[in-house]
Computed example of a mutant assay.
Amino acid sequence: MARALIAVTDFGVEEAELVDPLNALKTAGIDVTVASNSGESIQTVTGDKNWASTVSADSKLADANASDYDLLVIPGGTVNADTLRIDDDARRLVKEFAAAGKPIGAICHGPWVLIDAGVAKGKTLTSYISIRPDLENAGATWVDKELFRCPGNGWVLLTSRNPDDLPVFTKALVDEIS
């Protein structure tokens, strides 16, 4: 059975960007672990400012290893992504997945962590428009598409722009490891 890891912080994750991939992967028969920086429940938001549901974490980011999974998913939410990008364990996991040639999916502000993990250079990707300059300054090529699959640098990166792109993003995540 394929295994996926969703990496988040415990506050500020855009609700649909966590819940939709989680449900799509589980529905496809994929074993999913949600890991937060604290290992505690995740307070999600909508539109970065309205409190939404609370999602249980299965483990801490510190306890996760790329060798145990087939796919890494990085949801957005501005606060989540900004906190995740400076988290040592989140950066370690991104580096481990890329080094092992395992796919990573990131949506909205999620690709920010790729910069801080040092794996954005040479990749072509999309994201929320506001982080485009950061990604380009880090050596990535930015495109405006609902989904972009980049196999460059020896690992697959699946990216989407925002919650409107979730149907195609979640399908791509499932297809990548099914």
Score class of each variant (00 low, 15 high):
Asn137Ala: 03
Gly154Arg: 02
Leu166Cys: 00
Thr78Gly: 04
Pro21Asp: 00
Val143His: 01
Glu136Ala: 01
Leu61Ile: 15
Leu135Lys: 02
Gly76Asp: 00
Asn23Tyr: 12
Thr170His: 05
Pro151His: 12
Asn65His: 15
Asp89Phe: 14
Ala62His: 06
Phe148Gly: 04
Tyr69Thr: 08
Thr46His: 09
Gly122Arg: 05
Trp112Cys: 06
Ala28Trp: 05
Ala98Cys: 14
Ser67Phe: 05
Phe11Gln: 04
Ala2Cys: 10
Val73Ala: 13
Asn153Pro: 02
Arg3Thr: 11
Lys49Ala: 08
Pro163Ile: 12
Asn162Arg: 09
Lys121Tyr: 02
Val143Phe: 03
Ile115Leu: 04
Lys60Leu: 06
Ser67Lys: 13
Gly101Val: 01
Pro167Ile: 00
Ser178Leu: 03
Ala99Ile: 09
Ala100Lys: 03
Ile74Gly: 08
Lys49Gln: 10
Asp82Ala: 05
Asn162Phe: 08
Ser67Met: 08
Val113Pro: 06
Leu166Asn: 08
Val174Phe: 06
Pro133Lys: 01
Ala62Tyr: 05
Lys123Met: 04
Ala106Cys: 14
Leu5Lys: 04
Thr78Met: 05
Asp87Asn: 15
Leu135Val: 15
Arg161Ala: 13
Asp87Trp: 15
Cys150Glu: 06
Leu158Ser: 06
Asp87Cys: 10
Val13Thr: 04
Ala7His: 06
Trp51Phe: 01
Glu96Trp: 05
Val156Tyr: 11
Ala90Lys: 13
Asn50Val: 02
Ser178Ile: 13
Thr54Cys: 00
Ser130Thr: 09
Val156Trp: 02
Arg149His: 13
Gly101Ala: 04
Ala4Trp: 10
Leu157Gln: 02
Asn65Pro: 10
Ile129Gly: 13
Glu146Tyr: 15
Ala90Glu: 12
Ser56Pro: 01
Leu93Ala: 12
Val174Glu: 03
Gly12Asn: 00
Gly76Met: 13
Arg161Leu: 12
Cys150Asp: 08
Ala24Thr: 01
Pro103Tyr: 10
Ala7Asn: 12
Lys123Trp: 01
Val156Gly: 04
Ala2Trp: 00
Gly101Pro: 13
Ile131Met: 11
Asp82Pro: 06
Cys150Lys: 01
Gly77His: 01
Arg149Trp: 14
Glu14Cys: 04
Gly110Ile: 12
Arg3Tyr: 13
Lys121Asp: 02
Ala117Glu: 13
Leu173Ile: 11
Gly139Pro: 03
Phe97Ser: 11
Leu147His: 11
Lys171Asp: 03
Leu84Arg: 09
Val32Asp: 00
Gly77Val: 03
Ile131Asp: 15
Asp31Phe: 04
Tyr128Gly: 15
Ala66Cys: 05
